[in-house]
Amino acid sequence: MLLDTASLYFRAYFGVPDSVRAPDGTPVNAVRGLLDFIARLVQDHRPDDLVACMDADWRPHWRVELIPTYKAHRVAEEIPEGSDVEEVPDTLSPQVPVIEAVLDALGIARAGVAGYEADDVIGTLTGRATGPVDIVTGDRDLFQLVDDARGVRVLYPVKGVGTHQTVDEAWLRGKYGVDGRGYADLALLRGDPSDGLPGVPGIGEKTAAKLLSDHGDLDGIMAAVGNPAAKLTPSQRKRLHEARDYIAVAPKVVRVASDVPLPGFTPELPRAPRDPAALDALAERWGLGGSLQRLLATLGT
């Protein structure tokens, strides 16, 4: 089980009231919400291994060089030029180091690499996996990794993590008309305002799916642009031709990396805390209460 950790703690932050606080009054709603999420996921799915994948770089420079608008609207205002500081709620940022410390004390593996997003870590670990993989994320970008033959599916939270959409190839075809491999091509053609991806003007989701159905993949579509006999309308041919520069670089931006240089770590889900003393201190300092106890009980069984 691979967790898109930021996606989950954002969801926890907005789903758990900020009246959930540490003894000193500091909000810990994201911390406690994430612990409850992990407890529920472990209880429901019983993974052998679990990795909390982290955004060491939420907006990698190599992606921005290719598409300057990539996540540009999320950059916090009034920061030094050239800096990429993500705009997040004031009371969430201080909770992230607490989350990391608690996961470390529990012995739950964390993986993040400078210059890469959590999506890239997930893509690399999925490629290395020798058995089935459940990816837990609220980010549709990771639908591109769905692969029935390898047992790779996405658990997409609908309400908390107890109610989720299980995304496999049948669901993708029913929803988007593509499989996992085709989803990245559909996304870059359609565009995604939440990631600052412009897409191809005039090519929406349904048109993108039809083009992929007719021509197989992005390469097939672009080959058709240069073939007067190919099945394209004049407006489609014109729009795709005018978007050649974008289409040339977009795949590297949209597709998750599969070659992240990950450090060594043990992904096995712990049955007991790795550092009980540190965990006790964190529990007292931050008032982790029932959320931590529920997770410990779940891990123990």
Rank of each mutant, 00 (worst) to 15 (best):
Tyr183Phe: 15
Ala101Cys: 05
Arg153Tyr: 08
Asp185Ile: 05
Ala208Glu: 11
Thr126Arg: 10
Glu284Met: 05
Phe14Ser: 13
Asp119Cys: 11
Gly204Met: 01
Pro267Val: 00
Gln236Ser: 06
Ile122Leu: 01
Gly151Gln: 10
Tyr246Trp: 09
Asp148Met: 07
Pro80Gly: 01
Asp48Gly: 13
Pro80Gln: 04
Phe143Val: 00
Val254Gln: 12
Ala208Tyr: 07
Val178Met: 05
Ala208Val: 10
Gly264Lys: 13
Ala224Gly: 08
Asp148Pro: 08
Gly123Ser: 03
Gly199Ser: 02
Thr298Gln: 13
Leu3Gln: 06
Asp217Gly: 12
Arg40Lys: 11
Val113Ile: 07
Val152Thr: 12
Asp18Gly: 14
Gly112Pro: 13
Ala250His: 06
Ala101Met: 03
Ile108Thr: 11
Arg11Phe: 01
Ile203Pro: 09
Gln95Pro: 10
Val31Ser: 02
Val225Trp: 01
Asp104His: 12
Arg173Asn: 09
Leu295Lys: 06
Arg74Phe: 05
Ala224Gln: 02
Asp195His: 01
Val51Phe: 10
Asp214Phe: 02
Pro60Ser: 01
Ala118Thr: 06
Leu92Gln: 10
Thr5Pro: 04
Val51Lys: 06
Thr163Trp: 10
Val253Tyr: 10
Arg40Asp: 14
Ala224Trp: 08
Val200Tyr: 05
Gln95Ser: 06
Pro60Val: 00
Pro251Thr: 04
Pro201Met: 04
Gly174Gln: 14
Gly196Ile: 08
Ala39Arg: 12
Val31Met: 04
Pro234Cys: 03
Ala105Thr: 10
Leu41Ser: 07
Asp134Val: 10
Val16Trp: 04
Pro89Ser: 07
Trp286Lys: 00
Arg153Trp: 05
Thr266Ile: 02
Tyr70His: 03
Phe143His: 12
Pro68Asn: 06
Ser235Met: 12
Glu117Ala: 00
Ala22Thr: 08
Glu78Trp: 12
Asp185Ala: 14
Cys53Asn: 05
Ala297Val: 07
Phe10Val: 03
Ile38Gln: 12
Leu197Ser: 09
Ser258Lys: 15
Trp286Gln: 02
Lys159Ser: 15
